[in-house]
Structures are given as structure tokens and as C-alpha cells.
Design a protein around this nucleic acid. Structure first.
Lengths: 355, 355
DNA sequence: GTGAAAGCGCTAACAT
DNA sequence: ATGTTAGCGCTTTCAC
């Protein structure tokens, strides 16, 4: 007994459009080939004559055929889904990464799933495991600091889920994109020193982020090359938030002999520094130069414009997803791609105030 | 001939975990019930004895059973997918909306699909139609100005796809969330007037956004109530971007008799106003008060803090998705929910400068 | 309140 | 180079 009507047999209005969507069977029938051949065409498999291929493609277009993703997933045991896991430190950053990953996914006809994760929360590893069990993403993209979360990485390994990472610590990722943050920070420092600054403060990133160590090391490299002795009193622990930038500035600007320039490990904190400097009536850059890192949209929306290191987050998201998809689709071998940085000079940086 | 092994029969290591994921059949067997009963439990259908329900649930937990979404989708002819369409005017805004929608989706075990759309681009309606054909989302969430895109709305209607909207023009949505923007703007104006301002400029939103008319009308309401004559020379067309805020401020502050307060139709433009004012050496709020709308994170990251209308974008995203899901799941009747606004007073607003 | 069986639309394995 | 068939894991329909 047949419970459901086959449109190939009975044409019945089923959607609001008045016509049921075409299935692979319909295309196959119209093209005079088997379903398997249509399947081959749509999956770009070999062993289809060119003439057959183009005929199938034309018919499919005529019938406005769109493969049903659920059926494909079920039969092929793939989800055609990539999940992006992020712990939202800065919505500007995340949004750019999303844009890039989305770009790569759309090109590959993959779908993107988003999952905000609180990596400090208990059970965040379990939450990811559950996501994997339920949706079976073909791969994951991780942003810092999830990229370096030992427990999470081990679990992913056990689950056999591939992942690509942005700015992961070396060894924690085989796939993804990263940037030589240490060299970038050093270069920024050299530039600042060249403008006559000798007392340069630093507000670090959060301890769980690899970026903290790299940017701090770059800061020290820059000082060393200039022959400036490292002064621990000028380094404050931040945690990537605007508020921690304000706090850091408060402490550094409250010193008896305050710095003439402040290098924050990201733009949000740099914005906090500018805010606090303004509160104190300091003029930027006359009284204080401020430097950031990332070049998020924020750096152009505050006054004065923020001098920062341009990190191509959108590209990094796209590249990481591309490397992942290479492996997923078996069309190549993914790697960790180094992307270029660039000093973005804006008006928050000026010559050192003369003593 | 059997091509694939059934784990219920043969236990074979299939995943890296060493154990194949449990299927509904396994749960049914272990609980001594039929698959249909397990299905009923998982879909919260009626007609299951409480004892049976809890036994099934316990077994499922023991076996770590997670329903396979692809199989569910295929069989039920639903995608368990909601797509969010947005034309990215401000990444802060979009990110908040995403967060809210995601929240609602996760609660309902729905997946979210993102689709940035350039509504000015040719073929954007076709792009959406293709997305619908391929992924068959059970519903869409639209953000302005897509909420009021005639061609798009008509197409969705024909395709029979439900949608919920944020801040849609009345009549363009049956589902979603909105805010009385006109009243909010008027209230803001009254507050500004109470501080002695008489010449108050306005930079409008983009013409394609309903918000433009509402916020402009509120601005005029506020002036009228204060008995201040509307001066068209004080209104500049903006387009929601930081840059258009800078431009608008440039023109208004260049007037012979410049305004003492500037109300921008969103925060990004207000940040542009502050930027331009600083460029001119004006002190805020002493020389110029600046007002925004939305209360995105940006309004707290600039100096001085921006006085603005708090629009709960995250809640609006969540609520819109909830209304949509009510209809999708047939568990209720969705509507357009009015959400509250709130004046967010910060230091960019002060008493009018005495002439 | 519960179950049996058909079938959703596709791909995998095996044939030809 | 192309076709045949079983089956992916669930929900639906209908029977009990």
C-alpha cells in the first residue's frame, strides 16, 4: 500500500507555488538516464560523458531542480555543515570571522552553524560533544581561545572531528590561518620608538589567548632592539575588554612617571585607554599616543583614529574554512596559512612629548 | 544482499570513539518498545504513558542517543532550520540580533542559517529563492530594510515561506518584534529640549529603512511639543554609516548659526558626529550635545559616552525567532511583539551652551 | 496508548 | 560510461 503519492505519477499541488519541487528521479526520467547519473553530475564525479552531463544540467535547470540537502546528508553520511565555535570577546572580530567563514562555505555549498561557547563555563566540552553528536558537522572552525583549549581539543580528537583554527598556538592546529603577531607587535614598537617614545606601556591580552604571549614578546623585542630596558611596572594584565583597557590606563597613567605611549593588545582595550585619557583631560596624541591591535571597525569610529596592526580577520576566517573544506572534500591537503599584517597608522600616534 | 551493517546486529567500531552512535532502533530495543514510541517521546507527542516516557528517556540518556537531524528532516519534510537574512549596516547590530535568534533556535532545537544579502544588488530575490529551494528553511527572520522589500516579500509569499521581521513597517509582517521608535525619538527630544536646547539638528536614517520616517517623525513631534518651529535646514539625509554621520555633522556644524545638539538616527552616525566635532575642536557636551539611537556597544566605547535610545536588539532577535517558531511548530499563534525602549543617558548630552 | 510497515530523496556498493 | 538496488534513520499513516 502506498502512503505517499509520487509526483512522477500523480501531479498534485503541494507547495504554495502550485508545483511540487522536482526530485532527482524527475530529472533522471526527463533526461532519459538513471538517478545515479544525475547524482554523478551534481557531485562532479568522473565517468560521465560530456554530452550526458550537459543534457542533465540543462534539464535540471528547466525543472528548477535543487538537490535536497537532508536526503543527501542522510545517504552520504555527511552533514554538509561546518560549525563555527567562538567565545565572543569582541563582536566586531567575531562578525568579521563569520563573514569570511560564510564566504568559504557558500562557495562550497556548505552550510554554517554558529555556536557561542563560554569556555570558562563548566560543561562547555560536553556542549560541543552534544552538538557534534546531533548535527554531525563535517568540520569545526575554532577561534581563540578555544583553539588552545586542551580538554576540547582532546575530545575533538577522540570524536574524530576535523577542525581548523584561527591564531592557534603552534601544534594545536594542522589547519587554519595565523599571523606573525610577535613580529607585527615588534614592528609597531619600532615605529613608536622612532617617534621618540622611551616610556611605552603595554596592556596585555588575556592569559588564555596565545596572542597575549606573542604580542607581549613583540613588545619586548621592539624595546630590546631600541636598547630600552624592559620595565615590568609598565605592563598591565588586560583581558581584551574595553573595561580592562580603561583599568589598565588608569593604573599606568597614575604612575609618578607615566608612559608617553600605550600599546594595548587589542583595539577594544585601546579604545578604553583613549576613553580614560580623555577623562583625564589628556590630549591624544600630544600628551599620549595610543596603539591597538586588530584593526576592527572600532578603530576608525573613535576619535582620534587608532593606530593599530591590521589583522585580516575576515580573510583568516575564509582561509581557515577553505583549508578545512579542502580536507573534508578530499580535494587537497589543508595547512596553516600565514597571512600578512600591516601597520595601520592613524592619528592616535604622534611624536613623544618633549620633557 | 546487505550492503551496510546494522549495529543492532553486528557491533563494529565505526567512529573514532570506537562505538557507532546509537539510533532510535537501539533505544527502542533496549526499552522494549517500538521506534514509534521513542519517536513520540522525543517529539513530545501525546499518548505516551508517563512510565514509558521516563523509561525511554533514561535509556536514551544511557545510550547517549541523539536524534539524527538529517533523517528527521527527510522523513518529516521539515528542515529544522531558520534562516536569518540581513543586509549588514552595522556589525554590532547584526551580531546582537544573531545572538538573540540563536538563543531561540537552540531552545527549540532548531538550527540557524545566516545569509548576508545586498538588497541593492540585482538578483537578491533570486538568491533567496535559491536558498529556500535548496535548504528549505522552515522560516526566515528578516532585518531592515529587507523587512520592507516589496519584491522579496511577494516572492516569499508565493514560495509559501513564513517569515518574522524586526522593525518592519506595519502591514509588512505578521510576526516579529518592533519598538515604538517614533515615541522613543520624541521622548529623547523632549529631554534635550528640557536642557535648554532650541536648535537641534537631525541626521536621518537611510530612505529604505522604516526607521528613517519614524525617528524623523519623533524628532518633529518633540520639537512641536516644545513649540519649536521645524527648520528643514537642520535635517540632513544620512544612511546609517559612520561616514554619513561625519558628513552630516560637517554640514550642520558649518552653518552660520549651528545647532547646539545633534540627534543622529543611529549610533554609528552619532559616533561620526562626535568624530567630526572633535576634529573641529568642539568640546562635548559643552559646545555640542550628541544623541544616538540603538545603544550598540559602540555607544559606550567612544568618549564621551553616547546618550542614546536603548533598543534591545538581542531581545528583538530572540522574540522574532520565538514568534516564528511558535507558528512553525504549531504550538501557538505568533504576533508582532512591541518591546520597550529606554533613554540611555550618558555624557554626550549636557545643558545648552548659553549664547 | 502502542506498534508495523512504508517511504522521505538521495548515495553507496556492486553490476554491467 | 551507466544502471540497479539496498539502505541511510527517522516520521508518517493506519491498525490495533
Amino acid at each position: 500500500m502506498t502512503h505517499r503519492l509520487k509526483p512522477a505519477v500523480v501531479v498534485a499541488p503541494a507547495s504554495a507555488d502550485g508545483v511540487r519541487a522536482a526530485r532527482m528521479e524527475d530529472v533522471a526520467a526527463a533526461a532519459g538516464v538513471s538517478m545515479k547519473t544525475v547524482s554523478r553530475v551534481f557531485n562532479r564525479e568522473p565517468n560521465v560523458r560530456e554530452a550526458t552531463r550537459s543534457r542533465v544540467e540543462q534539464i535540471a535547470r528547466q525543472l528548477n531542480y535543487q538537490p535536497n540537502t537532508s536526503a543527501r546528508s542522510l545517504a552520504a553520511n555527511r552533514s554538509y555543515l561546518v560549525a563555527l565555535l567562538y567565545d565572543n570577546p569582541s563582536s566586531n572580530y567575531v562578525m568579521e570571522v563569520i563573514d569570511g567563514v560564510l564566504d568559504a562555505c557558500r562557495n562550497a555549498h556548505y552550510n554554517l552553524m554558529l555556536r557561542p561557547i563560554d569556555y570558562t563555563g563548566a560543561g562547555h566540552v560536553e556542549a560541543v560533544a552534544e552538538l557534534v553528536a546531533q548535527y554531525r558537522p563535517d568540520g569545526l572552525v575554532l577561534t581563540p581561545p578555544l583553539t588552545d583549549d586542551r580538554a576540547l581539543l582532546e575530545r575533538l580528537q577522540r570524536l574524530g572531528v576535523r577542525h581548523a583554527s584561527l591564531s592557534a598556538r603552534p601544534g594545536n592546529a594542522q589547519l587554519g590561518a595565523s599571523l606573525n603577531e610577535r613580529r607585527a607587535a615588534a614592528e609597531m614598537l619600532e615605529h613608536v620608538v622612532a617617534l621618540g617614545h622611551r616610556r611605552i606601556g603595554h596592556i596585555t591580552g588575556h592569559r588564555d589567548h596565545g596572542a597575549r604571549a606573542w604580542r607581549l614578546a613583540g613588545y619586548r623585542d621592539g624595546l630590546r632592539r631600541a636598547g630600552i630596558e624592559f620595565d615590568p611596572a609598565l605592563v598591565i594584565e588586560g583581558e581584551h575588554t574595553f573595561h580592562s583597557g580603561v583599568e589598565g590606563a588608569r593604573r599606568l597613567l597614575g604612575l609618578a612617571d607615566p608612559p608617553t605611549a600605550l600599546f594595548a593588545a587589542n583595539d577594544d582595550m585601546a579604545a578604553g585607554v583613549i576613553y580614560e585619557a580623555c577623562e583625564r583631560g589628556l590630549r591624544i596624541p600630544d600628551d599620549l599616543s595610543v596603539l591597538g591591535f586588530d584593526d576592527t571597525p572600532l578603530s576608525q569610529q573613535i576619535w582620534p583614529g587608532l593606530t593599530t596592526v591590521r589583522q585580516p580577520s575576515r580573510d583568516m576566517g575564509r582561509i581557515a574554512a577553505e583549508q578545512l573544506l579542502l580536507e573534508i572534500r578530499g580535494t587537497g591537503t589543508g595547512q596553516v596559512v600565514q597571512v600578512p599584517y600591516q601597520l595601520q597608522l592613524r592619528r592616535s600616534l604622534g611624536p613623544a612629548r618633549q620633557p
